[in-house]
Simulated scan of single mutants.
Amino acid sequence: MRIAAKRYFAVLATLSLLWGGNAARAEFQGQSVSDVVAVSFLSGWRLADGNHMAAIRIDLAPGWKTYWRAPGEGGVPTLIHLDETRDVRDVVIHWPRPDVFVVNGMRSIGYKDSVVLPLEFALDAPGEIAIAGRVDMGVCLDVCIPITLNLSGGLPTGTQRDAAIVAALTDRPLTAAEAGAGTARCQLTPISDGLRVSVSIALPETGALETVVIEHRDPGMWVSETVTRREGTTVSATADIVPPHHGAFALNRRDLRFSVIGSRMAVELDGCQG
């Protein structure tokens, strides 16, 4: 099983690191991977519905970053491969609120210092589950470096909650209702290889570096970086969506997700109206 931004979600889980290649090695400038990033697996607890909540904790050296599910033009997307895992039919990452970084004119979205990424596993068996596979992700200082992470560990049956995971679940983007946002309204315009989406949202300011991110439910759809504007209580943005065949396509507005990320808070809205 390979999962990449499935149903808006990229998935990440790990215990150990692998890396290779002369280009990647050179960018570490003599540092080992353990000097740059430390990753630990939090085994978590079994939920009342039979799912399991676990997490990974990523600790980064000063100045280094890793990425959100939509990493931006300066980031590296994340893939998880669970080919060696049984009794897990799906896994979803509950992303904490990310930060927006602009370096040399390029925007990336992610996390610095440390982050706990909660992972909710949907299980097909009631007992303790062994998980195994690998994860591809990126870390970045001045440039982004892809690394491969080995995944192995266990999901116990206990129900004692982990405080670090609970805190990360709490530090999530707000819903539209929680933020006092209005309905997202979007206009679709055909372009030569797809569609241009222009969205406007009535929303209180979310802070500095306010950025709108537009995502499509299908990870095969390419979505451009947005141009974000604010006028009073309304934030708006425009992006291009291009399908794999580079041509006209029918867009279901419910397949879009809009995230507004600022320095004080982030807000997520599903779908838009015409």
Rank of each mutant, 00 (worst) to 15 (best):
P71C: 12
V88Y: 06
M137H: 02
P71M: 15
V100N: 02
T14Y: 02
C272S: 08
T226P: 02
W68C: 06
L169D: 07
Y8M: 08
I214K: 01
P126K: 11
I3C: 01
A130Y: 07
A70D: 15
L155I: 12
D240I: 09
D90Y: 15
G127Q: 10
S43Q: 14
R264E: 12
T228V: 04
D218Y: 05
D59V: 13
A125W: 07
I241V: 14
G110D: 02
Y111M: 09
P98N: 06
R230C: 03
T228F: 05
T234D: 02
H81P: 00
D87T: 08
P71A: 13
A208W: 04
R230E: 01
D142W: 07
R161C: 07
L174K: 13
D90V: 04
R172F: 10
E225H: 03
P190H: 15
R257E: 09
D83C: 10
E120Y: 00
G271W: 01
N252K: 12
P146F: 13
L42G: 04
H81C: 12
G138I: 01
S16G: 06
K65Q: 15
P243F: 14
E205M: 07
A163N: 09
A237N: 01
L149H: 01
I191P: 08
W68V: 07
P77Q: 11
V242K: 07
G180L: 11
A55I: 08
G44N: 11
I191W: 12
A13C: 14
Q29E: 12
R134I: 02
Q273W: 09
T238L: 08
A179T: 05
Y67D: 05
A168R: 05
D240L: 13
Q29N: 14
L82Y: 02
A54G: 13
G158N: 13
G153C: 14
G21N: 07
E231I: 06
D99E: 11
V33N: 01
A202S: 11
G262K: 02
T226V: 02
L117S: 01
A10V: 02
S16D: 10
A179M: 06
A179L: 04
V139W: 00
E120S: 05
M106H: 05
R257Y: 03
A55Y: 14
G182M: 03
A55M: 15
T211G: 00
L12C: 07
L117F: 06
R134N: 06
T175V: 09
Q160L: 14
E178L: 11
H216A: 07
A163C: 07
D99H: 08
L269V: 09
H52K: 15
D49Y: 12
G271M: 03
W19T: 08
A132I: 04
A237M: 03
I241F: 01
A181P: 00
R254C: 09
A179E: 02
L60T: 04
L174E: 08
R264F: 10
T206S: 04
T226Q: 03
A181F: 00
K65V: 15
D124S: 12
R86Q: 15
G72C: 08
G127H: 09
V213W: 00
R185D: 06
G133M: 05
V213F: 03
T189Y: 06
S224H: 03
V116L: 04
H81E: 15
N22D: 13
P190L: 14
A132S: 11
V166S: 15
F249Y: 14
A38W: 04
E128Q: 10
R134C: 04
